Computed example of a mutant assay.
Amino acid sequence: MPRLSVIIPCYFNEDNIPVTARELVANEANFPPDVTFEYVFVNDGSGDDTLGALRRAQDAYPSRIRIVDLAGNVGSYNAIVAGMAHATGDCLAIITADMQDPPELMAQMYSHWKHGFKLVIGNRQNREETGLAVTMAKFFHWLMKNLALRNIPDGGFDFVFFDRQVATEILKLHERNTNVFYLMVWLGFAYVTIPYTRRKRQIGKSRWTLSKKVKLLVDSLLAFSFVPIRAISVLGLGLGITALFYGLYVIGLKITHPNEPAGWTTLMVVLLFVSAFQMVALGVIGEYVWRGLDAARQRPLYVVKDLYPET
């Protein structure tokens, strides 16, 4: 009897939990009767009554729901890793607590898993949402596809179904400041995509702030791409060649016009230009150095405060 573990990271989702739990359990009717289910809700240090809502959902579905209550907010990706570590299924799925991704798609994902695919990706082809957030999301995934991982699907994804082996390999990596979904693709397993339209959020307000989006972009680029470092090298080489020709020009100018006064403006422009490049270079290199330091410290990705039920 195959067992499916569905991991749901939760952060300020008090109002979503009753609807989410009910829809997930109702979705079981789309699966073959021999499949058993486990829903691993990870409370990522929520400041509202998300834990209370989860406990009430657990009382309603005691044989299905497990709760991992983290001691503090560690971010959705680390919360997902915590869910993987406590899930027991033969196959796993990740879905958001706001139900913007259709749970009924999991039955089709399960069918692909039964046919041998280790990874099945719900690929966002369209969104019911509009505005700047959607534009930024599309730009982010375009950037990642062109500068980092060329084999990721277009449109982005964070709704996935995967084999226990994929979860085991992710947990062995102990990656920090990374994108757990891109890590699944990076592992190299053949995957299949299922297109769908992402729903508009109906309950609550998203806590996915601009600062978190910027951090994710930086983390993803530095974790999977050497382009920032390579760009510094190319820019440095270009500036070096420019400086060489400009030096020859200044020497020639001095020879042909020995009484020409020194150009204060030119000197300051060159100085500021080179200084700006140095600061940008140091900033990019510093990002890599900081990530090396963070990995060397080996601090835990998350701290579990309580488990419900206790194990």
Score class of each variant (00 low, 15 high):
R3V: 05
L4V: 03
D15R: 15
R22W: 02
V25R: 07
E38F: 02
E38N: 04
S46H: 00
S46A: 03
S46C: 00
S46Q: 01
L51D: 00
Q58A: 12
A71N: 12
N73E: 09
N78R: 13
T88A: 05
C91Y: 11
A97H: 08
D101A: 05
E104K: 14
L105E: 03
Q108C: 05
Y110L: 13
S111G: 03
H115G: 01
F117M: 13
V134F: 04
V134W: 01
F140P: 02
N146V: 10
L147F: 14
A148D: 08
Q165M: 10
E169Q: 12
I170S: 04
L171M: 11
K172P: 00
F181E: 02
Y182C: 11
M184G: 04
T197R: 12
K205P: 02
K205A: 14
S206K: 07
L222F: 13
A223K: 04
A223Y: 10
L239K: 09
G240F: 06
T242I: 03
A243I: 08
L248I: 08
Y249T: 12
E260G: 03
T266L: 14
L271G: 11
A276E: 13
V280Q: 10
A281S: 15
V284G: 10
Y288W: 11
V289Y: 11
L293N: 02
D294T: 08
R299E: 13
L301I: 08
Y302F: 14
V304E: 04
V304M: 09
Y308P: 04
P309K: 13
T311G: 11
